[in-house]
Amino acid sequence: MDTYKLILNGKTLKGETTTEAVDAATAEKVFKHYANEHGVHGHWTYDPETKTFTSTE
């Protein structure tokens, strides 16, 4: 398992979190669920070199 990072740049919520996942697709599902639960619906990007997802509203 690898550690993946999420950076949230929402209108009402900003911050970072991490998750352990078997691959990027699994981490993306976890992070999108997390963002949706916190009302963040933004544009998603992923940097495979740093294993970092960013959601920007």
Score class of each variant (00 low, 15 high):
Met1Lys: 13
Met1Tyr: 13
Met1Pro: 10
Met1Ile: 10
Met1Val: 12
Met1Ser: 09
Met1Gln: 08
Met1Phe: 12
Met1Glu: 08
Met1Trp: 13
Met1Thr: 12
Met1Leu: 14
Asp2Ser: 14
Asp2Glu: 14
Asp2Tyr: 14
Asp2Gly: 09
Thr3Gln: 08
Thr3Tyr: 06
Thr3Cys: 13
Thr3Leu: 11
Thr3Phe: 06
Thr3Glu: 08
Thr3Met: 09
Tyr4Ala: 02
Tyr4Gly: 02
Tyr4Thr: 02
Tyr4Lys: 01
Tyr4Phe: 10
Tyr4Leu: 02
Tyr4Ser: 02
Lys5Val: 10
Lys5Met: 06
Lys5Cys: 08
Lys5Thr: 14
Lys5Ser: 05
Lys5Pro: 01
Lys5Ile: 11
Lys5Gln: 05
Leu6Lys: 00
Leu6Glu: 02
Leu6Met: 04
Leu6Asp: 03
Leu6Cys: 09
Leu6Asn: 02
Leu6Gln: 01
Ile7Thr: 04
Ile7Phe: 06
Ile7Pro: 01
Ile7Leu: 06
Ile7Trp: 03
Ile7Asp: 03
Ile7Tyr: 06
Leu8His: 04
Leu8Thr: 04
Leu8Ser: 02
Leu8Cys: 08
Leu8Glu: 02
Leu8Arg: 00
Leu8Asp: 01
Leu8Gln: 02
Asn9Trp: 12
Asn9Ala: 08
Asn9Val: 13
Asn9Leu: 13
Asn9Ser: 10
Asn9Gln: 09
Gly10Val: 04
Gly10His: 14
Gly10Ser: 08
Gly10Gln: 03
Lys11Asp: 10
Lys11Trp: 11
Lys11Pro: 14
Lys11Gln: 13
Thr12Gly: 09
Thr12Ile: 11
Thr12Arg: 07
Thr12Phe: 15
Thr12Gln: 10
Thr12Asn: 14
Thr12Lys: 09
Thr12Asp: 13
Thr12Glu: 12
Leu13His: 15
Leu13Lys: 09
Leu13Ala: 10
Leu13Phe: 15
Leu13Thr: 11
Leu13Ser: 09
Lys14Arg: 12
Lys14Gly: 06
Lys14Glu: 07
Lys14Ser: 11
Gly15Tyr: 15
Gly15Asn: 10
Gly15Asp: 12
Gly15Met: 15
Gly15Trp: 15
Glu16Ser: 10
Glu16Asp: 05
Glu16Arg: 05
Glu16Ile: 09
Thr17Ile: 15
Thr17Trp: 15
Thr17Arg: 10
Thr17Gly: 04
Thr18Pro: 01
Thr18Ser: 11
Thr18Tyr: 14
Thr18Gln: 09
Thr18His: 09
Thr18Cys: 11
Thr19Lys: 03
Thr19Ser: 04
Thr19Glu: 03
Thr19Gly: 02
Thr19Met: 12
Thr19Trp: 07
Thr19Gln: 05
Glu20Asp: 11
Glu20Cys: 13
Glu20Thr: 13
Glu20Trp: 12
Glu20Gln: 14
Glu20Leu: 15
Glu20Ala: 10
Ala21Ser: 06
Ala21His: 02
Val22Leu: 12
Val22Gly: 09
Val22Trp: 12
Val22Arg: 12
Val22Thr: 11
Val22Ile: 13
Val22Glu: 13
Val22Pro: 15
Asp23Pro: 01
Asp23Met: 02
Asp23Asn: 09
Asp23Gly: 03
Asp23Glu: 03
Asp23Trp: 00
Asp23Phe: 02
Asp23Arg: 01
Ala24Trp: 13
Ala24His: 07
Ala24Val: 11
Ala24Lys: 12
Ala24Asp: 04
Ala24Glu: 07
Ala24Phe: 12
Ala25Gly: 08
Ala25Lys: 10
Ala25Asn: 08
Ala25Ser: 09
Ala25Met: 11
Thr26Gln: 13
Thr26Tyr: 07
Thr26Met: 11
Thr26Gly: 08
Thr26Arg: 05
Thr26Ser: 13
Thr26Pro: 01
Thr26Ala: 14
Ala27Asp: 00
Ala27Arg: 00
Ala27Asn: 00
Ala27Leu: 01
Ala27Glu: 00
Glu28Lys: 07
Glu28Gly: 06
Glu28Tyr: 15
Glu28Asp: 04
Glu28Phe: 15
Glu28Ile: 07
Glu28Thr: 03
Glu28Trp: 15
Glu28Val: 05
Glu28Ser: 06
Glu28Cys: 14
Lys29Cys: 09
Lys29Val: 12
Val30Trp: 14
Val30His: 12
Val30Phe: 15
Val30Pro: 00
Val30Ala: 09
Val30Gln: 09
Val30Tyr: 15
Phe31Cys: 02
Phe31His: 01
Phe31Tyr: 01
Phe31Asn: 00
Phe31Lys: 00
Phe31Gly: 00
Lys32Gln: 11
Lys32Glu: 06
Lys32Arg: 15
Lys32Ile: 09
His33Ile: 14
His33Glu: 15
His33Arg: 14
His33Ala: 15
His33Phe: 11
His33Asp: 14
His33Thr: 12
Tyr34Phe: 10
Tyr34Val: 04
Tyr34Arg: 01
Tyr34Lys: 02
Tyr34Gly: 01
Tyr34Trp: 12
Tyr34Asp: 01
Tyr34Ile: 07
Ala35Gln: 03
Ala35Asp: 01
Ala35Pro: 01
Ala35Met: 09
Ala35Phe: 03
Ala35Tyr: 03
Ala35Gly: 02
Ala35Trp: 03
Ala35Cys: 03
Ala35Ser: 05
Asn36Gln: 14
Asn36Lys: 14
Asn36Thr: 13
Asn36Ser: 13
Asn36Phe: 14
Glu37His: 09
Glu37Asn: 09
Glu37Lys: 11
Glu37Ser: 12
Glu37Trp: 07
His38Pro: 01
His38Gln: 13
His38Glu: 05
His38Val: 14
His38Lys: 13
His38Met: 15
Gly39Ser: 06
Gly39Phe: 06
Gly39Thr: 03
Gly39Cys: 06
Gly39Met: 07
Gly39Asp: 07
Val40Cys: 04
Val40Phe: 15
Val40Gln: 04
Val40Met: 08
Val40Gly: 03
Val40Asn: 04
Val40Trp: 14
Val40Ile: 11
Val40Ala: 05
Val40Lys: 02
His41Glu: 11
His41Met: 11
His41Val: 12
His41Gly: 08
His41Gln: 11
His41Asn: 12
His41Asp: 13
Gly42Arg: 03
Gly42Tyr: 05
Gly42Ile: 06
Gly42Glu: 04
Gly42Gln: 03
Gly42Pro: 04
Gly42Met: 05
His43Asp: 14
His43Ile: 15
His43Ser: 13
Trp44His: 02
Trp44Pro: 00
Trp44Cys: 04
Trp44Ile: 06
Trp44Ser: 01
Trp44Tyr: 03
Trp44Asp: 00
Trp44Met: 09
Thr45Trp: 07
Thr45Cys: 10
Thr45Gln: 09
Thr45Asn: 08
Thr45Ala: 09
Thr45Gly: 06
Thr45Asp: 10
Thr45Ile: 07
Thr45Tyr: 08
Tyr46Lys: 00
Tyr46Asp: 00
Tyr46Arg: 00
Tyr46Asn: 00
Asp47Tyr: 05
Asp47Met: 04
Asp47Ile: 05
Asp47Asn: 11
Asp47Val: 05
Asp47Gly: 01
Asp47Phe: 05
Asp47Pro: 00
Asp47Ala: 05
Asp47Leu: 04
Pro48Trp: 07
Pro48Ser: 10
Pro48Thr: 07
Pro48Cys: 08
Pro48His: 08
Pro48Tyr: 06
Glu49Thr: 12
Glu49Asn: 11
Glu49Arg: 09
Thr50Lys: 07
Thr50His: 06
Thr50Cys: 05
Thr50Tyr: 05
Thr50Ile: 06
Thr50Pro: 00
Thr50Asp: 04
Thr50Trp: 05
Lys51Ala: 03
Lys51Glu: 02
Lys51Gln: 05
Thr52Lys: 02
Thr52Asp: 00
Thr52Gln: 04
Thr52Cys: 05
Thr52Ile: 07
Thr52Arg: 01
Thr52Glu: 04
Phe53Lys: 00
Phe53Glu: 00
Phe53Leu: 00
Thr54Arg: 06
Thr54Phe: 10
Thr54Gln: 06
Thr54Lys: 05
Ser55Gly: 06
Ser55Phe: 15
Ser55Pro: 03
Ser55Cys: 15
Ser55Trp: 14
Ser55Val: 15
Ser55Ile: 15
Ser55Asp: 05
Thr56His: 07
Thr56Pro: 03
Thr56Tyr: 10
Thr56Lys: 06
Thr56Ser: 10
Thr56Leu: 07
Thr56Glu: 10
Thr56Val: 09
Thr56Arg: 05
Thr56Cys: 07
Thr56Ala: 06
Glu57Asn: 04
Glu57Lys: 02
Glu57Ser: 05
